[in-house]
Amino acid sequence: MKNKSYIGISFIILIFGIYAVPKIYNRVSNDDVVRDRRNEVEPVKEIKKSSNLVKFNKVPTYQFLNQDSITIGNEFFKGKVHVVEFFFTTCPTICPIMNKNMKEIEQAFIKDDDFGIASFTIQPGHDTPSVLKTYMNSYDIKMKNWQMLTGDGGQIMELANKGFNIYAAMDDKAPGGFEHSGLFALVDKNGFIRSRKDEYGNPILCYRGIAQETKDEEGKVIDVLPHQLTELKEDIVKLLKE
């Protein structure tokens, strides 16, 4: 009985081989197996890639006067990618460098209606709308969406330190009477602060608008980090495409 069972099983295997092997051979020869697998994979060109930029908090609500004495708030920048800075017109140190570099950003995106710049003065007692207007003219600023804003000093300081985490403070010992960083913040079309990550995978939060020096206890420069205008421009392009 066992011999008959083996013979029966062998006969079934033989019949299957005669029927199936030629079909498998034909499929491999005609590349049908590979083509069927390809049909299961979505073409790369059809995959929508995200910007991969980190999203932080939404910019707090604000309203200030611009260089034309017009009230400007968050709504003005709704639907626009924009860069934010905090400066003052009489700054004798980093602000001229910041705004020289911001001019480079302006020139790169001056034809983009969906891009803007918001410059908040941290010395509103001096920087009235007319002063801001004169300052803008001195830099030959042409972009219609570049707004220089002034208003309540306390509100502006809170917006800088808490809203954008960009340090700014009054300091009688600092040149010009204010201590502040040379950082630029990037905001997307929906009002959220965005940034890329550094080489260690940590979000940078803000971009260096100027070269950043590190000094030792004696005031000697021991390290210099370059500005991040290239990185900022690359990320503006990403957000404009979102």
Rank of each mutant, 00 (worst) to 15 (best):
V33W: 01
I110H: 01
G182C: 01
A185C: 06
A211P: 06
M170E: 11
G163H: 10
S51V: 03
Q123K: 12
L225S: 11
D235Q: 13
D172E: 04
N165G: 09
F76S: 02
D152P: 02
G8L: 15
A174R: 04
F120M: 02
I94Q: 09
A168Q: 04
V224E: 15
D188K: 07
E85C: 01
L65A: 11
E242W: 06
T128P: 05
F184V: 06
E46Q: 12
G8A: 15
K4R: 14
T90F: 04
K241N: 15
D36S: 06
I97Q: 13
V221H: 13
N30L: 10
H126F: 09
D140A: 12
G73H: 02
V131M: 13
L240K: 14
F11W: 13
Y207R: 11
E158T: 09
Y135C: 06
Y25R: 11
I122M: 14
F192G: 05
R37E: 03
V34E: 06
V131S: 11
R208K: 10
K233C: 03
N99L: 10
I156H: 08
N30E: 14
I204C: 03
I13T: 08
D68H: 11
N202V: 12
D140R: 15
T61E: 09
I72H: 12
S10P: 02
E42Q: 07
R35P: 01
M136D: 08
I122C: 10
T150C: 11
N190Y: 09
F16G: 10
A174W: 13
K4N: 14
T93W: 05
Q212L: 13
F120W: 10
K80R: 11
V41M: 00
F120T: 00
N57Y: 04
I193P: 01
I166E: 02
G116V: 10
S5R: 15
D113P: 04
K173F: 09
K103I: 00
H126P: 01
L132T: 00
V54R: 14
E217N: 12
R27Y: 06
F86I: 01
V54D: 05
L14R: 13
G125E: 13
K49V: 01
L14S: 15
K23A: 06
R196S: 15
I97H: 05
L159Y: 03
Y135M: 08
S195D: 04
M170C: 05
I236T: 11
A108F: 04
I222Y: 15
Y207E: 08
W146E: 08
L225I: 04
M170W: 02
L149I: 03
E242A: 10
N165M: 09
K103V: 00
Q147M: 12
E218V: 00
G191V: 06
N99Q: 10
G176W: 12
I18P: 04
K162G: 00
Y135S: 07
V34F: 10
F64I: 12
V224P: 11
I9L: 12
D216C: 08
G176V: 07
G79R: 01
G182D: 09
K133M: 03
